[in-house]
Amino acid sequence: MIAWFSDPTHWTGSDGVFALVIQHLIYSGVALFFACLIGLPIGLYVGHTGRGVVLIAGLANALRSLPSLGLIVLLVILFGPVFASDMAFIVPSIIVLVLLAVPPIMSGTYAGVAAVDPAAVDAARGMGKRPLDILFDVELPCALPLIFSGLRSATLQIISTATIAAYVSLGGLGRLIIDGRAQNDYYQMAAGAVLVGALALLVDLAIGILSRLTVSPGLTRRL
């Protein structure tokens, strides 16, 4: 495997490691963006109002039991003919990534907002903060630790599933594994696996750092 990694032709070029990492990150980033766009507002709304708790809990459970591979394959066959060229597998793949990432973001956000000390919210109301100020000055910052933990599971889920989506031709590090399997090249598969694992760990670390920078030390109780 070391031999595989030390071959410079494996790193550069349109199907080199660098290009694959960039692709993996782009697809994951786009999926995460849309998942946040959907999950955050819903989680904030449900946490703030307390409406729809049962619905999102049920939704999260149901989506967790859906097999991601099956979903990707299903959507590719259903939507494939609708889109031209690469979009035929990119769009269905991204949809599945978003679908899997929304529940953790949504539940994390909801749980975070719901867990905010009711006394702090009452005090904020009593001193004359308007509802949106309460949401953004009090509830959101206090919910950040749980939002980040939701974001973390969502991101890992996305990176993991994006790897699987290589099976329906999606670019990214999964290519090394799927193509390696097709060519019976175990070293390429193992290299892909190592790279995906490393990517997941690095992204996880990055989110950890981001959360450390944005979450108030008053909440983490770190001195």
Binding site: T163, I177, G192, V194, V196, G197, A200, D204
Partner: peptide, 13 residues
């Protein structure tokens, strides 16, 4: 943190 497919591939090692 390790993606499932990666783990499946790496375990034989």
């Amino acid at each position: 943190t390790i993606p499932s497919l990666a783990l499946f591939v790496l375990l034989p090692l």
